[in-house]
Structure formats: structure tokens, C-alpha cells
Simulated scan of single mutants.
Amino acid sequence: MLTGLHIAVIGGDARQLEVIRKLIELDAKLSLVGFDQLDHGFTGASKEQMNEVDFTTVHAIILPVPGTNLEGQVDTIFSNEKIVLTEELVKNTPEHCTIYSGITNPYLNQLVASTNRKLVQLFDRDDVAIYNAIPTVEGTIMMVIQHTDITIHNSKVAVLGLGRVGMSVARTFAALGANVRVGARKSEHIARIFEMGVTPFHLNDLAANVTDVDVCINTIPHPIVTSDVISKMPAHTLIIDLASKPGGTDFRYAEKRGIKALLAPGLPGIVAPKTAGQIVANVLSQLLKEEMEGRKGN
């Protein structure tokens, strides 16, 4: 249980509702900022403006998956209020206050450095990333069906990267009958791709491996699907970029060539917000319990 823990949940989308439900279930005291337009209330949680929260008693701050923007603003779909997480607010929290976010950026990094607070990036964790790969794959399948006029079965699909998402994408499209090839750099990844029963290739040879693809799915958050690569693709190729913004695709050149290229980060929150929220909520509640027990032990 999280009895006695004061947590500020600041902004977010439908995923945060599952986090709120889970924390209420565990008896935490919640201050909800950026939820004033939410239709239903939560027993045990109070909707507040940023300046109404008593940050001197806040043990944890929970931000949405994207965290903040580069000016410290926190997005929310449940309010028109402009919400900014400032250094001044964070300095008012107890020294042991932890900030939880899906990902980070230079603003958040600077904020925790200047306030000497701990930042936990949930999407850096293997468990969260692997669980999230499930709705990501389902969303990718949905997009391929929507934006092509062929079946996945017997299509030619190139997957770039064999990280936690790339592995799940490759395995699932192969199971659906696609002819899957996977590009990677590390020799152990090449070996794993071979073991999975799909075709490996080195990313140095990417341009030569997209000359006949129907779908190219990128998971690498660096410029990889360049103009040179796109120029070798058939006109009907669909590019789906699952990497975090701004992705790894030259979208301007793809448009110039008439190739459909879609940036699709955050698919779990779009196609399955309830499941995606439960994934975050379960891991977050476990981390909060461990932190609480650690403080008691000290």
C-alpha cells in the first residue's frame, strides 16, 4: 500500500487515468493537475491548479510519457490550463521527491540536476518497453492494413533495428506470413535474426535491401531512412517510423518522391490507452512501493 504518500500527477492523456486508478487503489493521496475537464472525479484524489498544490509535502511527481517540452510545459488532453514544471516548484519538494516520466529531454535533465532530485525514465526500463511492444505491434499491423492495398501475408517487409520493439515487430509480421528481412549492425543481432527464421542483413547494405519492399518499418531513432535509401524503394512502399520524434526518416524527400511515410511514435497510447496505462501503472506502483520501503528501512 502507498498510504501516506502524497503524489502529484501532472498532465497527460488517457493512459494517466489508469495510473490514477491504480494509485487510488493503493491508498495514495493524489493531487491531479491538468484534469479539470475530466468528466468523472476520483474518490481520494483532488483536482488542483499548479499553484494550489502543496509541493512541500509531495513525495513523487508523475509526468506524462513525453515528460515536458523543451520549455518545461506539460501537455494534457483534459485541460486548457498552461502547465509548466519549473525549477522553483521542484525546489519546494522534499529532498527525497522523485520525478517519474516516460522519457526525458535537456530541460528535464537540467531541472533535476539543478534541484538535485531523482528522475526515473520508465521507458528506459526493459519491462515497460517489452510490455509496450505488444500494443505497438498491434498498432503497426493496423496502420499497414489501413495504408496498403495488399495483404500482409506474402508481402515483403523490412524491419530496421532489433531492439525490444524491432524484435516483436519482426516476429509478429513473420507469423502473419510476411517475408521479413531485418537490418541490424551488431553481429549478435544478425545471429539472433537468423535464429528467428527471418532474413538478416547489415544496415550498411540497407539501400540494396529495400529495392523490392512493400513495407519498411523503422525502429531506430537516428537518420537511417535517408534520401539515398528512399530513392531505391518502389513507389508503392509504405514507410512506418516507430522511432521517437523526429524519427529516422527523411519525410520531406519521401513526400517529394510520392512515397507514403508515417511517423508513429506513442502507438500504445493511441491504439490501446487502457492497456498502455495499466503497463505504466503496474510498474510505477511497484517502484513507488520499493521507494517507500527503502525510506522506511533507512
Results as ranks from 00 to 15, higher is better:
Thr148Ser: 14
Phe201Leu: 13
Thr148His: 09
Thr140Leu: 07
Met167Cys: 07
Ala175Thr: 09
Glu138Met: 08
Tyr131Leu: 15
Leu160Cys: 04
Thr136Tyr: 04
Asn105Thr: 04
Val128Ile: 15
Gln146Pro: 00
Asp124Arg: 01
Ala170Trp: 10
Val182Gly: 05
Met142Ser: 09
Val120His: 08
Val112Ser: 04
Val120Glu: 12
His147Pro: 00
Phe201Ile: 12
Ala175Gly: 11
Ala174Asp: 09
Ile141Cys: 06
His189Asp: 15
Lys186Phe: 13
Ile145Tyr: 13
Leu122Glu: 02
Pro200Arg: 11
Val157Trp: 05
Gln110Asp: 13
Arg164Trp: 10
Leu111Ala: 03
Phe201Cys: 08
Thr148Tyr: 12
Val157Leu: 13
Leu176Cys: 06
Leu203Ile: 15
Lys118Met: 13
Ala178Leu: 02
Ala113Ser: 13
Ile150Val: 14
Met167Ser: 11
Arg164Ile: 14
Pro135Cys: 09
Leu203Trp: 10
Val159Thr: 04
His147Phe: 10
Tyr107His: 07
Gly197Ile: 06
Asn132Val: 00
Arg117Thr: 12
Gly166Ile: 03
Ser114Phe: 05
Gln146Trp: 09
Lys118Phe: 08
Ser187Gly: 00
Leu176Ser: 03
Gly166Asp: 11
Tyr107Thr: 01
Thr140Ile: 08
His202Gln: 11
Ala175Cys: 10
Pro135Thr: 04
Val112Glu: 06
Asp126Glu: 15
Ile141Val: 15
Met196Glu: 10
Ile134Asn: 03
Ala178Val: 03
Phe173Arg: 00
Pro106Leu: 08
Arg181Ala: 15
Ile130Ser: 06
Leu119Val: 08
His147Val: 04
Lys156Arg: 15
Ile152Ala: 04
Ile190Tyr: 01
His189Val: 00
Arg192Tyr: 09
Leu111Arg: 06
Ile145Ala: 09
Thr136Arg: 03
Val169Asn: 12
Val120Asn: 07
Val159Trp: 10
Ile152Ser: 00
Ala129Ile: 01
Thr151Asn: 10
Asp149Pro: 00
Asp127Glu: 14
Ser168Trp: 05
Asp149Tyr: 02
Met143Trp: 01
Ile145Val: 14
Asp126Tyr: 06
Ser114Tyr: 04
Glu188Tyr: 14
Gln121Met: 14
Val198Leu: 12
Ser187Asp: 14
Ala133Cys: 07
His189Pro: 01
Ile193Tyr: 12
Gly183Trp: 13
Ala170Asp: 07
Glu195Ile: 02
Arg185Gly: 05
Asn109His: 04
His147Asp: 10
Ser114Pro: 00
Val112Phe: 09
Val165Glu: 06
Gln146Thr: 02
Pro106Gln: 05
Leu122Arg: 01
Lys118Leu: 13
Ala191Thr: 12
Lys156Ser: 12
Gly161Asn: 02
Met143Asn: 06
